[in-house]
Each structure stands twice: as C-alpha cells, then as structure tokens.
Amino acid sequence: MMDKPISNRAWFLVVPVMAFVLFSSLIPMMTVVNYSVQDSMGQNSFFWNGSEWFQHLFDPATDIGGRFSRALVRNLFFSGVVLLIEVPLGILVALCIPKRGWAVGAVLVSMALPMLIPWNVVGTIWQVFARADIGLLGAALTGAGIPFNNTQDPLSAWSTVVVMDVWHWTSMVALLCYAGLKAIPDAFYQAARIDGAGRWSVFRNIELPKLRRVLVIAVLLRFMESFMIYTEPAVVTGGGPGEATSFLSLDLVKIALGQVDLGNAAAMSLVYNLITLTLCWVFFTTMTQLDARGSA
C-alpha cells in the first residue's frame, strides 16, 4: 500500500523549471545580494563592504537613510489612503451593478476598461488630463478658481496620483465583490425580507459576511500593488514636486540608475522586498485567522 513508484524520469520535468527559476529570479537576486555587501571604485572592481550599506539605510541621520524612511512612510500612507477609498467604493459600486439583463455585460466591460490600459498609458492620460494649462481636469479646476498645479503643489500632485489609482483599480475591487455578491443565493434575501430586515441590516448581516473572502483577496492585491507602485507616478509627477511623491520604487530607480549607486540601491531593494513580503504575510495570516475564528 505504502510503496510509491519511484521514477527518475520526473527530473526531466523538474530540471527545466529549476533552470528557468534560477536564471529568471535566483541569479539576478543573488547579484543584488552581492552588490549589497560590496563597494566599487569603478573599473568593474569590487571589494567587501560588510553591512555598511544596510547600516546607512537604517540610520535616518544619513542622506540615504532619511530618503528611505521618508519614502517608506509615503508608501504606507499612499497604500492606506488607496485602500480606504477603493475598498468601500468598490463594495458600493458592486452593490449598484445590475444583477441581470443586458446592462450587466455593458457595465462589466466598461468597468474592466481601465484595468486593460497599460500602466504607462494610464500615467500619460492622467499627466495630460491633470495639466493646469491644457488638461481637462487641471484647466477646469484652475478655471473654477481652485488652485491646482501638480508640478508645483504637493497636495495637487498627491491628489492626482491617488485619484488616478482609484480610477485605475476600483473596478477590480468592484468586480471581485460583484462576483461575491452574485454567489449569495436568493433565499438569503427572501429570508431577510420575511424577517423584516432593512437594507442596512441586509448589508451588515448577509452581504458583508459573505464578501469576507473576496475582500481578503482584494485588500491583499490592492495593498501589494499600491505598495509597489512605480509607473503611473513616474510618468505623472516623476516623484515631484521635490520629493513629495517619491515612493520607494521611484527613489530606488533614481539611486540605482540615476546615480548608479549600486550598493545603496541593492540594500534598499532587498529591504523593500522583505517589507513587502512581511506585510503581505501579516495581512494574509491575520485575515485568514479572523476568518477561521469566525467559522469556529
């Protein structure tokens, strides 16, 4: 019963995958690890530098440390704001999508459109849209007497980036929630009517609990992507004005490719990576544990 067939032919399937992972992730990753513990004087000659890059990174008094901690706070703030807007708005939109009829297809397709546009095009659209001189949004706001200039005013730049992300990704939360809502059998709504429950009570006691699982996925995806955001702000604000919208990824690219400061950039990207992984893990475990406790 217990003897499993042993076949070495399985290696033919495993080895190509391992080779692919090696070349696509592991070797580039190890190169970064390598840069993070060495320094260079140019001429492609490197020497051992120990943990100095990391010490700088974690010390806010140094230039790089200061930049890193400010960018990290900006990133966390951005993800928080984006989640706080997109999740409730997505649920609200999902509740408003019709459940049957020809309108369902039309609404779903038009809602999916922003997600189908390449990131840099989204950035370009909003860059033009928000320009204070010729952009529809920017010019309209300026014309209405509201001070708006996303190249000079940090608040304008921030609102542009946040609104752009909401425009780009709320549909995803809404579509996930819509799928979750569709899975609720009619009997629940009928029982609620018989029990005399109001609209808010139906949402609170039926819809929201049934959406819990899709919301875990939505929050996780939206957190991960907003925490790693790069392309759209790079195109719209370029991290400015000043460093007002310099998120970790933007700063990282500036250090690595602008200043060719490989040691600092390598250390930063490793820490950035670890933070993302850790936060996702924390999110996922707490939310699944809350879920498990709810079902016990």
């Binding site: 059998p185 009997a187 629940f188 029982a191 009517r193 018989i194 005399g196 006691n205 709810g294």
Partner: peptide, 21 residues
C-alpha cells in the same frame, strides 16, 4: 401586502442563517 407584514414563516431549501450572529 408586503412580505414583512404578512406574518408568514418560510424555511428554504438551503439553510439560511446569519453567519456573524
């Protein structure tokens, strides 16, 4: 007369309970 004012109880094919309660 709307459902909630009819004093009818109904048990459905699939059990309906409020999960969080």
């Amino acid at each position: 007369v709307p459902t909630e004012r009819r004093n009818i109880a109904q048990v459905f094919q699939f059990p309906v309970v409020y999960d969080t309660m």
